[in-house]
Design a protein around this nucleic acid. Structure first.
Lengths: 103, 103
DNA sequence: ATAACTAGGTAACTTTATGTAACCATAATA
DNA sequence: TATTATGGTTACATAAAGTTACCTAGTTAT
């Protein structure tokens, strides 16, 4: 029975995504329903607008989140999870169950 | 049907733990079997000794990891997952399955 | 008309976190 | 005697995150 002696790159990549500050909470927050920039910010008040904006761009690039600019006045932006993002959120439920039991 | 308007502190806390760099990979690495300091370092070469040591102290304080100093010469230190840590590792499997499918 | 407010940012600057390189003590080995 | 291994620590450099002020365009209050 061999012991693996190097990490799978997919495993490394997923922890690289989740290892950035606030990412987990943002995805958790979007699992309920799509939300606007200021709504996410209201749910996670300690997350600054600067970093929130940065995280949303990264999550969009990763195909986890979809940005929908609504040409209303004032302009609104709605963020929603893609299929990929929704499945990520579902897999994070296991982690949250662990938290509920152990923290 | 109410929409939750604030985050559960347990949820916040678990993402606070997992949101620190390298934590996920360290737990993943220890799921196989207990490992010494230098073995973890060999599995995750980009993780510096300074930060590895810091992370292990934090994980020990969180009750996720157990540090066992072996009074051999030279002194060795073996890190293993507690029950709490093992269950965390199991819950992270869902995330890794997501990674395998989507990344 | 003018001041203040909203939404979703951006810019400049400060503070933390992380990365890097050198060093330590002990004992074993060459 | 010099070198290696282990599990760190220290001092310093860079990257990431936090803070405050500002922006544009339209809206509401005075």
């Amino acid at each position: 029975m061999e012991i693996e002696n190097k990490l799978c790159s997919k495993v490394e990549e997923c922890y690289h995504i989740l290892g950035k500050k606030w990412v987990g909470l943002v995805i958790h927050t979007l699992m309920e329903e799509p939300k606007r920039f200021s709504e996410i910010h209201a749910f996670i008040p300690n997350l600054s607008k600067r970093v929130l904006n940065e995280r949303m761009k990264e999550l969009e690039e990763n195909g986890i989140v979809l940005r929908n600019v609504i040409a209303d006045r004032p302009v609104r932006t709605e963020y929603s999870l893609t299929k990929k993002g929704t499945e990520l959120g579902r897999s994070l439920k296991a982690l949250e169950n662990w938290a509920d039991k152990w923290l």
